[in-house]
Design a binder for these strands. Structure first.
Lengths: 230, 230
DNA sequence: TGAATTCGTGTATTTATTACACAAAAAGTA
DNA sequence: TACTTTTTGTGTAATAAATACACGAATTCA
């Protein structure tokens, strides 16, 4: 602490981070919800979150919440928006910094301390949620669709190796529209963000085995000059 | 206050809003800076901001700060990003929700309570700034360039009526590149977001007077299907 | 009245996007 | 083992969008 005014304690809002965790499951875009075990909104579904510790950055707080609920580190996440309506929490003034995270299907959820249950819910069919979490999820979904068109973020929803059909299906689920197979592949090819492996997805389906691809980590992902999928 | 845990006072961060106010002046993109009159960073330049009151929303706090420094209401502004590094303020933990605002050239700055001076500075040539404000301005500038390509936000930097050349110059300054006059005008025409007036900018230059246009308020501005200026 | 300046307009070329179909490889079944 | 079913992987022509580019008209200034 150096000199200088800071507001006395009772005048400070509380600050939380809340994380919208997306994952593709059962051919649907799902979001991880917890059933609240404490007031307010006990028994209601909510996105995971918690108070920001005094010595951790916002990103660190989001990472911590994410790991508590999924056990995973090193997944894609980014800050979404900060929600600060004075009435959004009945306990008093709570400002929340919302994050979005993308995890692949092989990541499983686990209930944290203050949740009585955890489950994946389709974004198309959300239960009534605590706080303004419905609004937050809607906002996150809009941002995800948007980012998918411009950046290579779609890979974050798939395991390390995937077939082109799986990747296309992922895009179709998030964007909510069918894509043309050949045009989709041409775009990926031009973008140069994939590398092919010598392995194939065999035995699973009943047709011809598809080649497995992997995302080139050194590919420039952010702020493409052109849309990836117009 | 209903039941439910909230962290006790000393564990809460302080929360501010800071506003990056952009304006076009002297054929340059400028940002409004205040010279700090109190610790920390007394005498250093900073973007205007202040603590969020317990009973106001974040947008309201940003609007209030904006009005204090410029005297204007009803200008374009939007939330930018929330900066929360634990070390960003030497007084202790202060999280800031950053905003961007766009004001036309006819708006003038005025020093608030805790500023010893106010001035417009070119974003190309910023003085050393307090806190992480250099980073915040950089981020805001990137977002502005980006938004300009996709939305009709450029009008917010001009007065109600403007010539097409003035509008083009505004875009060129923010984007940092020359645009083709005929292509620029065709795009505006196709977008259908302008309406022409019967008035002309006369006497000011030495060439042929240019027609004045105005932005059609009912035009759909957000999330164009196509880029406005690719 | 002529020189200088800014305004306002159209077309041809290049590039990007879209729409569309079939043979090859494997699995399942009779 | 042959036949059916399913999924993979590939190219081209038509349409739409983006770019590059020049000059006469209207005004001010000397």
């Amino acid at each position: 602490m150096t000199t200088g005014y800071l507001p006395p304690n009772p005048e400070r809002p509380a600050v939380t981070v809340d994380v919208v965790i997306f994952s593709l499951r059962e051919k649907d875009l799902k979001v991880l919800l917890i059933r609240r075990g404490h007031p307010p909104f006990t028994g209601k579904w909510a996105i995971p979150g918690g108070f920001v510790h005094l010595d951790e950055s916002l990103d660190d707080a989001a990472r911590r919440e994410l790991e508590e609920e999924t056990g995973v580190r090193d997944v894609y996440f980014e800050q979404l928006y900060t929600f600060g309506d004075p009435k959004r929490d009945p306990r008093g003034r709570v400002i929340t910094v919302a994050y979005v995270a993308l995890v692949p299907e092989n990541v499983s959820a686990r209930a944290g301390d203050d949740a009585s249950a955890v489950a994946w819910h389709s974004v198309q069919n959300l239960p009534p949620l605590a706080f303004d979490h419905t609004e937050i999820i809607r906002y996150a979904h809009r941002r995800l669709r948007y980012k998918l068109e411009y950046t290579a973020v779609g890979f974050e929803l798939l395991p390390d190796e995937f077939t082109l059909s799986e990747l296309q299906a992922a895009y179709e689920i998030v964007l909510g529209e069918k894509l043309d197979k050949r045009n989709f592949r041409r775009r990926l090819d031009e973008a140069g963000i994939l590398e092919e492996t010598n392995r194939f997805r065999e035995g699973e389906g009943q047709g011809r085995p598809a080649r497995l691809y992997r995302y080139r980590k050194n590919a420039v992902t952010e702020v493409k000059a052109r849309r990836l999928f117009p």
